[in-house]
């Protein structure tokens, strides 16, 4: 942006900071949000009790919580949780290492980038769930099946963001680096990596979310164990409150992962003047 696009400095609103600066749709911090949450909780407690929704399908919140309290006292729950988190963590780790290193390589070597672009554009939209039957055939119900799905889904999120990031290196900075005859390692260290970092962090955040989706889905469709499998079992045995309890649990895990990823993003990019929107992801 040019300086002319900066808001006028002598508008009192901007000057006195009386109008809050634009903010991302950030995690809840206001009391109003808590009120909303509480209201939502009350709603799912009361709705089934009034008979407005069928109680067989939609038990009150207290029943869900009770079912969950029972569940967390079983070893099976903790095994399932561990399995899911392992599938998520290991898969995400592999996807990050592969995505970042390949992205930096392809992004910095022009010839490679051009010749791989079409292949990436073709493989990226292939839905990871298409690999479910293949995973089952190859690995059966091992952790590897889950990993295959998780890695495939998360890898593209990271790769694409890293490629965007490397593309974003300022042409002037690139020229400057060349005129000072920086070697490839120094260029990567001082020029490409800092520019790409915001994009990498966006990639990490998106990949972390997608990895959880696939880690749970794998269990749900019977490729592996984990919380997804627990949900499937609870459903087929008609334990409706437990189904809800487990789904809420996966949601809470998702919230935690999201918050962690955003905190990491903020910490890493605190020097960065503007957090970029994930347009282009």
């Amino acid at each position: 942006m040019t300086t002319t696009d900066v808001p006028a400095l002598d508008t009192p609103d901007a000057r006195a900071g009386l109008v809050p600066a634009r903010r991302r749709f950030a995690p809840p911090s206001s009391a109003l949000g808590l009120v909303g949450l509480a209201g939502f909780a009350v709603l799912i407690e009361v709705l089934p009790r009034t008979g407005l929704v069928p109680r067989d399908y939609f038990p009150p919140l207290s029943a869900m919580v009770t079912a969950m309290v029972d569940e967390v006292q079983t070893q099976g729950f903790w095994d399932a949780l561990t399995e899911t988190l392992m599938g998520w963590g290991i898969g995400l780790g592999i996807a990050l290492v592969a995505g970042i290193s390949l992205g930096l390589l392809l992004g910095s070597v022009e010839v490679l980038r051009r010749y791989t672009a079409s292949t990436i554009e073709f493989l990226r939209p292939v839905p990871s769930v298409a690999l479910i039957p293949l995973a089952v055939l190859l690995f059966g119900f091992q952790l590897q099946s889950t990993l295959l799905l998780v890695v495939y889904a998360a890898f593209w999120q990271v790769l694409i963001q890293v490629l965007y990031g490397v593309q974003d290196v300022d042409p002037v900075a690139r020229e400057t680096a060349r005129s000072y005859q920086l070697g490839p390692v120094a260029r990567l260290r001082y020029l490409i990596w800092p520019t790409a970092l915001p994009y990498v962090m966006t990639g990490v955040r998106l990949a972390a979310a997608v990895a959880l989706i696939l880690a749970v889905t794998a269990g749900l469709v019977g490729v592996g164990r984990g919380l997804g499998a627990e949900i499937a079992v609870a459903q087929s045995s008609g334990a409706v409150p437990l189904v809800y309890g487990l789904v809420i649990t996966t949601g809470l895990i998702g919230v935690v992962i999201n918050l962690l990823a955003r905190a990491l993003e903020r910490r890493t990019l605190s020097w960065h003047s503007s957090m970029r929107a994930d347009i282009g992801g």
């Binding site: 949450l37 959880l212 809420i248 998702g254 919230v255």
Partner: peptide
């Protein structure tokens, strides 16, 4: 609604 929506987004949709 912010926290409630954030929660719904965080649930893996297939679940």
């Amino acid at each position: 609604t912010e926290p409630v929506l954030e929660f719904f987004r965080a649930i893996p949709p297939p679940a």
